[in-house]
Write a protein that binds this DNA or RNA. Structure first.
Length: 211
DNA sequence: ATTTTCAAT
């Protein structure tokens, strides 16, 4: 049973290489997506599923996930019997890269017509977000508008992923150098991206006034 | 100081 489950888990080296939140992520030509799916089956009870995916055959991992979604979440999209309610799900993603502009837009569209799905998104690194006017930045704002909570992964998130998705064989999660600093830097960057400009202007104004 | 990015060779 353990051995069977192990094959579904991420090898330690793969996780560490692809999720490392280093400034210059040379060679990460793959993106991994670890997910947790929770289904609301009653007023209180939740069922639970988890796993991981990576991009394949030129298909970004987010869109790959959308393809698997109906199998993963029965009753999410179908219309069911007349008068029957759709099933509600909460999904959490932990992605090694944040989504590209196209994936963000496709996701936002999908979520717009699937109000019974809540998506929480943790990312290790920000994908093509250096330019002030990058389409990827715009895409992240679109996702926020679609109700997605986007957060940069911190120590506790890497730790949780290690415990949940990695074939760790009893080994403890060993944070790499600068994990915390990198996470803080990226979180600030993401906040600046998601923050409406007015707030930023106000903050500067307050600073000028010494308030 | 500078470096990369869901590849393409």
């Amino acid at each position: 049973m353990i051995a069977k489950l192990d094959s579904m888990l991420l090898p330690r080296k793969k996780f560490l290489y692809h999720y490392k939140n280093v400034r210059w992520a040379r060679g990460r030509h793959e993106t991994y997506l670890c997910f947790v799916v929770k289904k609301r089956v009653g007023p209180d009870s939740l069922s639970f599923d988890f796993g991981h995916l990576r991009n394949r055959n030129g298909c970004h991992v987010e869109l790959l996930f959308l393809r698997y979604l109906s199998a993963l979440c029965p009753g999410l999209c179908g219309y069911g019997a007349p008068g029957e309610r759709r099933v509600s799900y909460s999904i959490t993603w932990f992605c090694s890269w944040s989504p590209c502009a196209n994936c963000s837009s496709r996701l936002a569209q999908f979520l717009g017509r699937t109000p019974n799905l809540r998506l929480r998104l943790f990312v290790s690194r920000l994908y093509f977000c250096d330019m002030e006017d990058s389409r990827e930045r715009e895409g992240l704002r679109l996702l926020k508008k679609a109700g997605v909570h986007i957060t940069v992964m911190s120590y506790k998130d890497f730790f949780y992923c290690w415990e949940t998705f990695v074939a760790r064989q009893q080994s403890k999660f060993k944070p790499w150098d600068d994990l915390h600093q990198n996470s803080v830097r990226l979180a600030r960057k993401l906040n600046r991206i998601l923050q409406p400009c007015e707030t930023e202007d106000l903050r500067d104004a307050f600073k000028l006034l010494g308030l």
